[in-house]
Design a protein around this nucleic acid. Structure first.
Lengths: 160, 160
DNA sequence: ACAAAGTATCTTATTCAATAAGATAAATAT
DNA sequence: ATATTTATCTTATTGAATAAGATACTTTGT
């Protein structure tokens, strides 16, 4: 067997990494879908709840950007989430045209229970994992998250 | 500042990791949504294309399991994908009730172009990354992917 | 200070993906 | 052989998301 050059080896590692990452993502998307189903929500709703948890209260407009929905779509989604008690609109002190979406933390705790099984498994997995390696992974993720995501236009191709 | 115990430190690392992971996932979901938009597809369609790429040809039934759709939903999605030339149904040699969904690789290459920008960035990022650390990350992802995902029922809560 | 332009959200009519329930056909079990 | 199970498809229906435009507030330019 011919020995690999360092760069070939590194390319192979990168390819494996991408592959494992894609598997991971596919699994997460399916899991989210299942949880959403259980809660009577849509993947889009789940995504919004996650975003609000991660980034804190934000305007419907920003939520539209972060979910890829139109602002009209966000309006009806918020009506839905508000009616079901997941979130509420509060006036934005900085701009009276605007509104801030806040989560209902009690309700979110209930949502969290649906992630309980996977959280437990993940918790045990991580607790048993070598600290040094976890730190390496954290660094990796943090850096990858800081990559400015790319020049994708938010809108559809127009036919000319 | 009080010094942290090792287990406290490890718990903190785990929490950071989960947080970064959630950010990563939210970003990926948004990106997928954007690409789907561009292609005139739905997130569900994208997910199916990804699954078929990752796992190879499979039956509509398995696709239903992996996407969380009903089999009827898969049927119409496949009609859609087939009409648009992304995939085709071929008879399953092992079971004549059944069918295998194959991707159109030429068309998938075109889909890949929409991931071009991010792939380039990711490629450069990974090429510049220390090989040892990438290997650590690959190991991490591989193990996390092998965790048998959890006891979530595929169906909605019934009201009793 | 005022009008014009810009921005943020909401409204409404419409479209079409997804579901639910059941039909069809083939495989497996009794 | 017949019954049961499994795999996909069909059809009617629902409702999420869009597109286009309305409303309300802010900012900018004169």
């Amino acid at each position: 067997m011919p020995r690999q050059s360092n760069s070939a080896k590194s390319a192979a590692t990168a390819a494996t990494l991408v592959h494992q990452l894609r598997h991971f993502i596919a699994g997460v998307i399916l899991y989210n879908q299942r949880v959403a189903d259980q809660l009577g929500l849509h993947p889009t709703d789940m995504q919004s709840l996650h975003l609000l948890e991660l980034l804190g209260p934000m305007t419907p407009g920003r939520l539209a950007e972060c979910t890829g929905l139109t602002t009209g779509g966000v309006t009806v989604m918020l009506d839905r989430l508000e009616k079901a008690g997941y979130a509420r609109r509060e006036r934005n002190p900085d701009d009276r045209r605007s509104v801030l979406v806040h989560l209902n933390t009690a309700k979110m705790a209930r949502v969290g229970e649906y992630y309980g099984a996977i959280n437990d498994q993940l918790g045990r997995f991580l607790a048993a994992y070598p600290q040094r390696e976890l730190e390496t992974v954290v660094r990796f993720l943090t850096r990858i998250n800081s990559i400015r995501t790319p020049p994708i236009k938010a809108s559809k191709e127009k036919k000319p």
